[in-house]
Structure formats: C-alpha cells, structure tokens
Computed example of a mutant assay.
Amino acid sequence: MKAVAATEYGGPEVLRPYSAPKPTPEPDEVLIRVRASTVGPANSAMREGRPFPVRFFSGLRRPTSIPGDAFAGEIASIGRDVTRFTVGDRVFGTTAPNSGAHAEYVCVPEDGTLELTPAGVSDAEAAAVADNGLTAILFVQNVADLQPGQSILVNGASGGIGTFAVQLAAHVGAAVTGVCSTKNVDLVRSLGADAVVDYTATDVAETGETYDVIFDAVGKGSFAQFNRMLNPNGQYITTVPSVGILFDMARTRLVGDRRAVFAATGMKSTGVRKQYLRELQELLDSGEIRSVIGRRYPVAEIIEAHRYVDTGHKRGTAVVTID
C-alpha cells in the first residue's frame, strides 16, 4: 500500500512515499481505506523530533512509524467481533495518540475515536474536522470551559485550529474576536467572529480590549504578551508546549487570578475524544460548522505539504489525499 516514511528527523526533505505492507484488522478492529488526511504543525514537530519528548511516541533515534493521525475514508474490512460498522461505511476519526494515517490503509479499534461521515461532507472536509476541529473543541469546551456571554480572543483565527475555534466559540454564544492578516479578515468574519483584528495594521495588545479567554491557536504569543488583556480570572491558553508556558502555568497557579494553560489534547482519553468527535459530527451534519480547506496535496507531494505548513501562514487545513 502507499504510505509515507521518514528515514531520520529533520526538514520536509526527510519524508518519502513508499510501499508498505497492508495491515490486517484484529477481531475488534476495522480496516479503513484512507482517502484524506491532514498535515499541521504537530506533524512538523513529529517529523523534526522536537521538542524531544515527541520521540517517545515516534522513536528516540529516528522515526519508526507512519506519520499522521486524522483520517477520512471508508471501511474496507472488519474484524470478526465488530458490530458497530459494516464494509463500505464512510467514516472519519483519529488514531491519536498513535499515528499511521498517512497511508492507504489503517486499522482502528471499533470503539476508537471513529464516527460515520455525514452525507454531503467530503473526505477532505471530514479529515479536517477530525484533526483541527477536534483540537479546537477540546480547547474551547473542555480546557477553557467557555460559557455563553464570555469573551474570547482567537489568535491565528484563519488557521486550521483557529477557523474551527471561531465557529465553536460563536456556537457556544461567546463574544468572539479573531486575529488574522488582511487577506483573511472576511473569512474570519464569515465564520462568526463579532470583531476581527488585522495584525498587519493593528497591534492587538494596543486595542484596550480585555477577554475572559485568549486562545493562542498558533502558539506565537506568550502569557507575558497577553496577560494585561485578560479579565480577572481569565485564561491564556496555547496549543504549543514550551519551557516558558510550563513555567507560567506553575507560577500562575500560585500567584494572581489569571492563568496560563497548555493542554496536550492528543493525550486526552479515548472516551473524551469520542464524545467531542460525536458532537462535531452533529454540528457538521446540521451545518453549524464547516471546514476551511486551504490547500490539497496528493500524498506524492507530502514534502510540499510540509513546506507549506512550515511557512507558519497556513489558511485553514492542509489536506493530503491518498488515491
């Protein structure tokens, strides 16, 4: 089967398409013919092996597994004990905290983070939800516990996670402000943002506005930068781990009423991820949320997909198709 491998840690050039053995499902697993997956900053971090703790999942000296975790496609075969799905069902989900989705086929437990794809939703759109949508809802609802009437600033509102965070925060009933560049202002406003700050023209820290939650969806800011923009008992939440955020987390637990928070959403329990993927499925089916696909790459162009993500200016989700 077609798959992606990396022979060492490094830049996009370490990746290569190759032919891997087709997996066989265990009695409680389904075999999925993957049609679409995604590439994002987390995939770049795994490729680079930085920060070092990611190597405990991918290999200490070099990558040992097929990358990628979000997927969408159809069920090709099922194990003998599977009752929830049948061959031919269109599904989407994630293998997290494991990987293997950048391949033609992947095996997933029947009771894993896996749902039926709503009718009318493409595999690319579903894969984006399984990746960035799931990350966004875990941060907005599970970590921040955002409530109706609260205010939230989404930094990186036009990116993969940010586009979903804006929609989910608006759905909750929060007052949403998005931060993005000029070319993405209309997009972010169309997703439900009440206000949009163009960072190329305005320093968001100088607007004088304050928020209950500041969600740094691209991890380019810091607690020190956004601290004075937080309301009392406010939270600065980031998707990117660093020594700085870990120090701020420890310090703000002891001092003051504003909190710095990082959460490894990929390490949430399967039960939690399943709960939120099911909610996303319902929101996708009802049209309450939509995927923003920035670019699509065939798996043969996996290097170009990673180079695009590494620019740090990705619009929506970067999708990899596997035909």
Rank of each mutant, 00 (worst) to 15 (best):
T163F: 00
N132W: 05
G316S: 13
T113F: 01
Q235V: 03
T38C: 13
G11Y: 09
A36G: 12
G11H: 10
E209I: 01
R62D: 10
K183I: 11
V319D: 01
V82E: 06
K22W: 07
L191T: 02
Y18R: 14
L114R: 01
S269I: 13
G162F: 02
R189T: 12
V34W: 00
I214N: 00
A96W: 01
V204S: 04
L284Q: 11
L284V: 11
G271I: 05
A72R: 06
A119L: 08
G271V: 08
K314M: 13
D285A: 15
L31D: 03
G10F: 10
D69L: 05
I245F: 00
E304M: 10
E125R: 07
R295W: 03
V185I: 15
V34E: 04
L114F: 03
E104G: 15
T64E: 14
A205S: 14
V255N: 07
R253G: 09
K220M: 07
R189H: 13
P51A: 09
A260K: 02
P51M: 04
V91C: 05
G11K: 11
Q147V: 08
V121F: 07
V292K: 03
T202Q: 15
Y199K: 05
Y211K: 01
S286Y: 07
L31W: 01
R315H: 04
F92Y: 15
T317F: 04
V240L: 11
A128K: 06
T113K: 00
N184T: 12
P241F: 10
I75T: 08
S77G: 08
A318S: 14
G133T: 14
T270H: 04
P21V: 13
V121L: 11
P97F: 06
V108G: 04
P97E: 09
V154Q: 03
V34I: 14
V30A: 05
D248T: 06
V108H: 04
R50V: 13
L230P: 03
T86H: 13
T182D: 14
S44F: 02
P241R: 09
E288M: 14
G88I: 05
A205Y: 10
D216H: 02
A130P: 11
V87E: 15
P241D: 04
Q141K: 14
K314C: 12
